[in-house]
Design a protein around this nucleic acid. Sequence first.
DNA 1: GCTAGAACCTGTAGTAGCTACAGATACAAG
DNA 2: CTTGTATCTGTAGCTACTACAGGTTCTAGC
Lengths: 135, 135
Amino acid sequence: MRAYRIGEISRRTRVKIETIRYYERVGVMPVPDRSEGGSRIYNLEQLKRLSFIKRSRELGFSLDDIRRLLSLADGGHSCGEVKALTQRHLTGVREKIADLQRLEKTLDMISSRCSGDDAPECPVIDALFEAGPPG
Amino acid sequence: MRAYRIGEISRRTRVKIETIRYYERVGVMPVPDRSEGGSRIYNLEQLKRLSFIKRSRELGFSLDDIRRLLSLADGGHSCGEVKALTQRHLTGVREKIADLQRLEKTLDMISSRCSGDDAPECPVIDALFEAGPPG
DNA sequence: GCTAGAACCTGTAGTAGCTACAGATACAAG
DNA sequence: CTTGTATCTGTAGCTACTACAGGTTCTAGC
């Protein structure tokens, strides 16, 4: 099976070398073989695993989630668990969107009260001194 | 002027005591007076400043932004600069929303291909092994 | 005045997910 | 055999907190 050095899998996946080593340290990437001199030597499967991690990160999964996904992928996964994990993540994403949209609305409202010229009093500053939502 | 101990401004602003001390350390809260024994003693202005920080954080401003906002608020601020800062932040928020919406779409699509039963093969896992967007 | 208990103090380490060094060694090409 | 690139380990930094440990201060009741 073909061998890859860390620089090569870094280029292929667009994951920084330091990040790959970090993934190894925290246990999402497996410990690879080493050359005689001590350089990391990866195989095709490990390269694929790294793209899996990359893609999952792009989709906003946490490294904890990714560890779970990988162990499901390894161990003759049940589709149900994978879907559940994905759905939980999707719910989180939707909540974040809703939060940010509330934020956007408020910021927009506050900002629109402001002329933007060099007036000495600023409604934005005033608004920030007001209390936020109760709770 | 009325004096407040740290516990009281913490209760009033719902900012944790440790966080208030952290704000002092990183220079967004001013160094307060101390009692003879060494307890921090705040005045009304400092209490107001803390609610300003709290509100700004709720609106997603970074501590760096907040430092700038506060110095604008202190120094006979020009409304224009405040508005510019707010607009930049708003743009950032909108970008984040757009990113998350793309994410949501992709996740939803991937997830919908999955039956969710205990099938041995899982389209979600397969999808995660595929490359993401080019770039 | 004394004591119990709440409130406060400092300092440090941990969280997520990297990123950025420094200083040393390995490897490939000529 | 040399030169230059690639890789190595280990540590520290980033944001914005949070959570201790182990000690001191303050306040209320007696």
